[in-house]
Write a protein that binds this DNA or RNA. Structure first.
Lengths: 189, 189
DNA sequence: CTAACTTCTTGATTTATGTCAAGCCAACAG
DNA sequence: CTGTTGGCTTGACATAAATCAAGAAGTTAG
């Protein structure tokens, strides 16, 4: 079984048999470094599951670019509320490496529960995990210093620091690139 | 129909008929100002829907108290991931005014979908809305100043500023009580 | 190979925000 | 009524982090 199927199955909690029922709903898609999977203002008609590579989620606030998240393998790539509520995307997803995705259309997504009985439950649990990640991110901004946020995130995903530009990681952590550079320098001593 | 039923129905998107099917799953509960609905370390066996009053969600980080959210009418009171995944609560919910809740046990919660066919879907949509609120909170910490965060939140919930102590609101906005006081003073001129 | 970029680092300076401390006022208890 | 307490404000000062600026190092394009 390919890695991506493992990723989907793990992330969603599907059995192999359940996945067999719906695997045709997913289309593989490749995105070249620098290209976009989703642009703000577009209707969000599909959801991506990252197999390989990294997508950067970002948006503009007061004309300034803000990196919100990096979707690596096992993560989804979608403006979730725009997808579910049929609204226009508020964010962009750009490939910062070559990326391989499995993509599912809104129509097929809505059809899953006819094939997999407990889908809505599984999907809810998946969403709850995402929710929990966001909750701890909020708390980290309420209670931690820049250096503490760096340490926390570095422990979660050390590899990303070799794969994404520092200024984008800094933005996602809510600090300037210079501050991140200095923290990192300090830590290496 | 009482206000609370309206709140639940609106928040979850239930029809009146659907709500009739499950209304017995909910128990009313009153909490006096200062008392707790949930304490960290306890297993989370129930979920609360706030009818009247305000619950403050908080936790300790490095021995410092951090206010994470205020649950007012229409909001839920629960450590969601602990509730869903049968873990111990990471947070406390304390009444900062007298509070009226409707409470549902985990057992009854799991039973809802046997009474209301599309429950898992509705519940997921509700969760997605909560997710979306959190997302914009994260972005506000990545991109906005203390004053901008104040303005954004004040527009969302101006009444809270008369009902909750400022130091707790400040904590929830990720700033010191003094900074909040100064911003507010400045705005009133 | 060289030029043009981009990314990262490092130093100097500024600024937003935190911390500490004092005092005011309203609520409340005795 | 009076003392105590908690919530809020205000000023003085400290500091984390942003900004500005220059240069080093690595990458890409011609």
């Amino acid at each position: 079984m390919s890695d991506i199927k493992k990723h989907i199955i793990e992330a969603l909690g599907l059995t192999k048999r359940e996945f067999q029922e719906i695997k045709d709903f997913f289309q593989p898609k490749e995105i070249k470094k620098g290209d976009y999977f989703l642009k703000e203002g577009q209707y969000v008609r599909q959801m991506g599951f990252v197999e390989k590579g990294i997508l950067r989620e970002f948006l503009y606030v007061n004309e300034k670019e803000v990196t919100k998240w990096f979707s690596t393998s096992g993560y989804i790539a979608v403006d979730l509320s725009a997808f579910l509520f049929d609204q226009k995307s508020k964010v962009n997803y750009q490939a910062i490496t070559d990326v391989e995705l499995l993509v599912i259309s809104k129509e097929n997504y809505n059809r899953i529960s006819t094939r997999v009985q407990r889908w809505d439950k599984l999907d809810k649990m998946f969403l709850a995990k995402c929710f929990s990640v966001l909750e701890s991110r909020v708390v980290s901004h309420l209670a931690l210093s820049a250096e503490e946020r760096y340490n926390q995130f570095f422990n979660l995903n050390p590899r990303l620091f070799n794969e994404a530009p520092l200024n984008q990681i800094a933005s996602m952590l809510g600090m300037s690139a210079e501050t991140l550079s200095r923290i990192r320098n300090k830590q290496s001593n």
